[in-house]
Design a protein around this nucleic acid. Structure first.
Length: 853
RNA sequence: GCCGAAGUGGCGGAAUUGGCAGACGCGCAUGGUUCAGGUCCAUGUACCCGCAAGGGUGUGGGGGUUCGAGUCCCUUCUUCGGCACCA
């Protein structure tokens, strides 16, 4: 016996490290490997994963996200598409500043080092990105276009400056973004409540597009319904009316008014008070000479703030204080007391409401507590049986009803009255129908160093002056001391602050705030199409090719961006369209939101100690195994519970594939490339059938549901079938009953099916099979329904002794039972009677399905 | 409170149109290979009764439609996610 037999292939383990490192060395330096072409004759496909923040290391959520996108990109390549699959870095933001303070490393240095590390991680994982289009948002080559867009928006009145409340952490002595406020506290000082401060801020007028952003959600049928609902709620459109209540000159100038917003102007005859938000400007006037009242109002403000910190404003008790003033209800001239209440929000509507206790739950609760009158002005719309109902249970909040005690409007339904009463207000000059939105303008000023400088100047003579386009970019200076607190770090750099006014040539001061990092990510995917353009953010024709009319073909990312990033991106696209830069109304045609990666039932986090490191997984099991497992363990849209034992199973599977091909690849044999013979043995036919069933299942998953867990399961079944076909008399040998041409085709197809999920192993085996061409461009295996079909025979079916038709049944079905069951069941009989049976399904000899036509 | 998603073996999950519930994988058990362990190969594995053949019960609970329900309808419970005095 030859000594080689001692180390037979049976025991050979698949050495993933050796194989993957070999291909990694080959792929890594080649940046053109996955380059997309412009204006190819092939159809285009733009697949994009959300770009990461370069925190230093990939985590499993990234691996999952990119494994989904990469599988799709590779599948589309194999189907002949011209694929654009780029990657970049969302590289401005707070963590770089924190790291700078902690490690005494400049943010730029820290960020670039992280990018270098993560890029190698991505390459080692085998993701097929077109690195020639890499976008790094903290480079001036990119952020100058943020500044350019800002100037365009400023010209069009879409960027403006106003005083506004911001989150302030006293320990950091600086402003925080909303996202950096966790449960009302600073995310860095978790015991420190965030304060509100008034600051001058730059805003982008996203509310101008509120209606369109809402309306166009209907076009986004390639988005998860969940995301569309979240955006709809976020925009929060509600129709109603403004009504002016005359203060009767008791406060401020004579004739001044309080404007309330209401969605139920039909109930206005039931108003028994007017409630103001504690921070309403009129309250400031009223309390100006009344320290007592002022103190009570301050108490209400404190209560609101506390509720906001708790994050549950609905649970604090309603409190209010009577101001001693009255307003006039313009519909019936009734004098109504003016209160200040802690349940009225200054940042919704007008910060003032009319209180109608009979028809609003909150007003009712408040009126009960302070014994304010409750006046019923809408009655239920009675059906015939409801005539006795005159006093509905209070509060009566149904949307429609019959108006009573409402002057000239009595007798109308609510629906009619809403319209007529708003018209009445407008005609008489004390109100009008209106629409309000929950969506607020986007405050983009950040008192931070590591962001895009806002390209604005302040001149004593000329006021606010934009930086001329030719002077862009306004470069973010290096070597800024950010360890000091208090104010914007850029304000401490004289050579940055001190500038010349482009209008008068006199001295001017530069804006020292930087832009929110969400600006960077609002349009980066356009930049990928033309990433090295230094004369414009991109070439419009090039964007036109890749985006078409409907935007990115497929966008993939976490659901946590369902509102912020995705609504800003939609806004930005509409602005760019109105600037004539793009033709599409929406940036993303199809959106896929993947689930989170969790472990032991909890989100991975350092504090819980349940973090799984991709580097470690690659080192222990290989990139293919890590990727395959992240797709196999759960459907991609659901949360994935990571189990180390699961990835071991994947490792085993990859070894089984490897060993099968290693012992069955015979590319040098004369029969290897011959066509598959027609007459196959039962066993060979079964293998061929399984192959085509597998091709169908995997292909369908790519087309539709993306349940790659079942695709991979199908490939596993195919491999199990192949193992079953091998004879195991002591040791595995070639499946004798399978002719070599079929064995060759099965192996080629198996490798192709695996290529989108496990590129390293697939490339290795592609070579083993003697294939020379690029696996990336190899055609996806073709599904042949005839070869996938189970064998069936046609038999006649009789009901009550009469021939009712002929049906196809599985070859091994028990024919005698066909008639027996059909005859025994009366309902089956009557269903079949007079109709033609087109199909009957038998399983294990039992009738389980029949179809009549 | 409102909106949304989901409840299936010891575990992750499958069942795409109403038609064999539990594919595939993990785990476990048994056997083979091995000096041995691991690896690898094979077989079994929802639960209950039974030596077996076989029988019974099963997709959170209750009810319904249907020849047939994890799937459709009503109702209810639980978990997760989002929004929340939005006037």
């Amino acid at each position: 016996m030859p000594p080689e037999d001692k180390t037979s292939t049976r025991d050979e383990r698949y050495d993933a490290q050796r194989v993957e490192n070999k291909w990694f060395e080959r792929w890594q330096p080649d940046s053109a490997l996955y380059a997309a072409e412009l204006n190819s004759t092939r159809p285009k496909y733009y697949v994009l994963e959300m770009l990461p923040y370069p925190s230093g290391d990939l985590h499993m959520g990234h691996v999952r996200n990119y494994s989904i996108g990469d599988a799709l990109a590779r599948h589309m390549w194999m189907n002949g598409y011209n694929v654009l699959h780029p990657m970049g870095w969302d590289s401005f933001g707070l963590p770089a500043e924190n790291a700078a303070i902690q490690n005494n490393t400049p943010p730029r240095e820290w960020t670039l080092r992280n990018i270098a590390n993560m890029k190698v991680q991505m390459k080692r994982l085998g993701f097929a990105y077109d690195w020639s289009r890499e976008v790094t948002t903290c480079f001036p080559e990119y952020y100058r276009w943020n500044q350019w867009f800002f100037l365009k928006m400023y010209e069009r009145g879409l960027a403006y400056r106003k005083k506004s409340k911001v989150n302030w952490c006293p320990k950091c002595a600086t402003v925080l973004a909303n996202e950096q406020v966790v449960g009302g506290n600073c995310w860095r000082h978790e015991d420190t409540p965030v304060e509100q401060r008034e600051l001058e801020q730059w805003f982008l007028r996203i509310t101008k597009y509120a209606d369109e952003l809402l309306r166009d959600l209907a076009k986004l049928d390639g988005w998860p319904e969940k995301v569309r609902i979240m955006q709809r709620n976020w925009i929060g459109r509600s129709e109603g009316a403004f009504v002016d209540f005359d203060l009767g000159g008791t406060v401020g100038p004579a004739g001044s008014t309080v404007t309330v917003f209401t969605t139920r102007v039909d109930t206005i005859y039931g108003a028994t008070s007017v409630q103001l938000a504690p921070e309403h400007p009129v309250v400031a006037d009223i309390t100006a000479n009344d320290p007592d009242l002022r103190a009570k109002v301050d108490q209400l403000i404190a209560e609101q703030r506390k509720a906001k910190e708790v994050g549950d404003i609905g649970e604090i008790e309603k409190h209010g204080v009577f101001t001693g003033r009255y307003v006039r209800n313009p519909y019936n001239q009734e004098a109504l007391p003016v209160w200040v209440a802690n349940y009225i929000l200054m940042d919704y509507g007008t910060g003032a409401i009319m209180s109608v206790p009979a028809h609003d739950e909150r007003d009712y609760e408040f009126a009960k507590k302070y014994r304010l009158p409750v006046r019923l002005v809408v009655l239920p719309l009675g059906g015939e049986s409801d005539e006795t109902v005159t006093e509905p249970p209070l509060p009566f909040v149904a949307e429609n009803g019959l108006l009573v005690n409402s002057g000239q409007f009595s007798g109308l339904t609510s629906q009619e009255a809403l319209k007529k009463m708003a018209e009445h207000a407008e005609k008489n000059g004390f109100g009008k129908a209106t629409v309000t939105f929950r969506l607020k303008d986007w405050g983009i000023s950040r008192q931070r160093y590591w962001g895009t400088p806002i390209p604005m100047l302040y001149c004593e003579k000329d006021g606010i002056v934009p930086v001329p386009e030719k002077d862009l970019p306004v470069i973010l200076p290096d070597n800024v001391d950010i360890t000091l607190t208090g104010g914007s770090p850029l304000g401490r750099v004289p050579e940055f602050v001190n500038a010349t006014c482009p209008k008068c040539g006199g001295p001017a001061r530069r804006e020292t705030d930087t832009m929110d990092t969400f600006v960077d990510s609002s349009w980066y995917f356009y930049r990928y199409t033309d990433a090295r353009n230094d004369r414009a953010p991109f070439d419009s024709a090039t964007v036109g090719y890749w985006f078409g009319d409907r935007g990115i073909d497929q966008y993939i990312g976490g659901v946590e961006h369902a509102i912020l990033h995705l609504i800003y991106s939609r806004f930005w696209t509409k602005v760019m369209r109105d600037l004539g830069l793009v033709k599409n109304d929406e940036p993303v045609e199809r959106l896929f939101t993947q689930g989170m990666v969790i472990k032991d039932g909890a989100k991975m986090s350092k504090s819980l100690g349940n973090v799984v490191s991709p580097d470690e997984m690659v080192a222990r099991y290989g990139a293919d195994a890590a990727r395959l497992y992240s797709l196999f363990a759960a459907p991609p849209d659901r949360d994935l519970d990571w189990q180390d034992s699961g990835i071991e199973g994947i490792q085993r599977f990859l070894g089984r594939v490897y060993r099968f091909v290693m012992r069955n690849a015979k590319p040098d044999s004369a029969d290897w490339r011959r066509p598959v013979p027609q007459d196959l043995s039962t066993q060979a036919r079964q293998v061929q059938r399984k192959l085509h069933q597998t091709i169908k299942r995997v292909t369908d998953d790519f087309k539709g549901r993306w349940h790659f867990n079942t695709s991979i399961a199908a490939i596993m079944e195919l491999v199990n079938e192949l193992y079953g076909a091998e004879e195991h008399a002591g040791r595995p040998s070639a499946p004798a009953s399978i002719p070599l041409p079929l064995l060759a085709e099965v192996q080629r197809s198996l490798v192709l099916l695996l290529a989108p999920f496990a590129p390293y192993l697939a490339h290795e085996l592609w070579q083993t099979l003697g294939e020379k061409g690029s696996l990336l461009r190899a055609p996806w295996p073709k599904y042949d329904p005839a070869l996938a079909q189970e064998e069936e025979i046609e038999i006649p079916v009789q009901v009550n002794g009469k021939l009712r038709g002929r049906v196809l049944v599985p070859a091994d079905a028990d024919r005698s039972l066909v008639e027996a069951r059909a005859l025994a069941d009366e309902k089956v009989q009557s269903a079949i009677a007079g109709k033609k049976i087109v199909n009957i399904v038998f399983v294990l000899g039992k009738l389980i399905n029949f179809v009549v036509r």
